[in-house]
Design a protein around this nucleic acid. Structure first.
Lengths: 210, 210
DNA sequence: CATAGATGTTTACGCTGCAAACATAGCGCG
DNA sequence: CGCGCTATGTTTGCAGCGTAAACATCTATG
């Protein structure tokens, strides 16, 4: 039977309007809900109210959609670090401690997205430049903290990149261990924060100018 | 036509002999070769010279096979740390530095297995106890190093577990960043080792008794 | 106002993980 | 010694997946 054409636009219009964002959003939600392995593109489509082939007008393939999700994640993460930095102007030690807490907190609240971001979905020939750039931006936020600390003599180290790497590694490692193999499984955010503080103290001790 | 029965055993016997190990081995190889996403159970079977339903006699499902692979990985990793410890008797600082190098080196040589181990294949209701135990054993190796260092006054910290967490987080974080999102992609093992040493120095500085 | 390009749908295909029914082989018990 | 029981491997079948191609619909541009 012919579908009602024209007058009642109530019945979801043929064109979605903003399918790109809807798909990313739906993918984010379903990803956290079902896990990366159980996430099917078709279910994302169903969730966005669209046929299972529609995404191919906006994404080359499923991996490209996941890259968009990862990119959005890096942007959020970078923003949280930036906010932590702004929260303690002129206090680099407080800035990293707070940034570390924010990092761990965000990751534990979005475990699947975090795993996606740092997993290894890139097959190197498909190194989406946008994704790389978003990750770089998050890195730069940490760099700014360390750089200020080193320029005011609070932090030491032979070069800023080494110190950034040390700090990021420690926080990121804790994060992945928490998400990881079932060894560390704190029940509530309080415990997460306590662990983050332990690592934070050690990091600051390790990179402090002496 | 009826298959030759009995006399010439050349023609691969109906029973494989040691299918369990063969499947784990084949899965390990194919995992590193094709990546976790592209790994199909059917291809593992073909590689082991067996029909695509055979594994179900030995593993509940595909995830169970991957768990066995992960478990073997943790055993290997724990062994490497243990060897690093044995290499510098009475020198805890050298022990962690060397263990850290071994950790990073092993992970970069077996990236897919590492991602599998620390990814998040456990759905918590399927927390295979063997897997948890293998991971715990690797943890214990690090614990022994830190514990000795603290008992001889080389390392500080309020409790051993906190120090272990700090050290492991830093090394593990570096590892995952190297494997990770394309930010750190050192070409050769030399670079990897240099990065490991940077993190190692910071960790030791951070946990040293002062 | 027509029509070209962008956006969404339908249909189809090969591959996947898994279950059920079937075949074979080795092992213990009479 | 032989018979069947059980462990192991195979075949067949199914629903769901990602993706491509052909088709339908809308929207914007001349």
């Amino acid at each position: 039977m012919m579908k009602n054409s024209g007058h009642t636009r109530r019945e979801r219009p043929y064109h979605h309007g903003d399918l790109y964002s809807s798909l990313v959003k739906a993918a984010e939600d379903l990803l956290e809900e079902k896990g990366a392995n159980a996430l099917s593109l078709r279910e994302v489509c169903q969730c966005a109210g669209v046929s299972h082939a529609a995404p191919y007008r906006h994404f080359r393939d499923k991996a490209a959609l996941m890259e968009a999700v990862a990119k959005a994640g890096f942007n959020q993460l970078g923003e949280m670090i930036s906010e932590a930095r702004a929260r303690h102007p002129g206090e680099p030690e407080m800035q990293i401690l707070d940034a570390g807490r924010a990092y761990v907190a965000w990751a534990t609240e979005n475990p699947e997205r975090t795993r996606l971001m740092f997993g290894g979905m890139m097959k190197s020939d498909t190194i989406d430049e946008d994704l790389h750039q978003a990750a770089e931006a998050a890195y730069d936020e940490i760099y700014r903290i360390i750089d200020e600390g080193r320029s005011t003599g609070v932090f030491g180290g032979r070069d800023t990149d080494s110190v950034v790497l040390s700090a990021w590694s420690a926080v990121h490692g804790l994060t992945m261990l928490i998400l990881g193999s079932g060894k560390l499984t704190p029940e509530n955010p309080r415990d997460v924060r306590a662990l983050a503080d332990i690592i934070g103290d050690t990091v600051v001790s390790g990179i402090r100018s002496r």
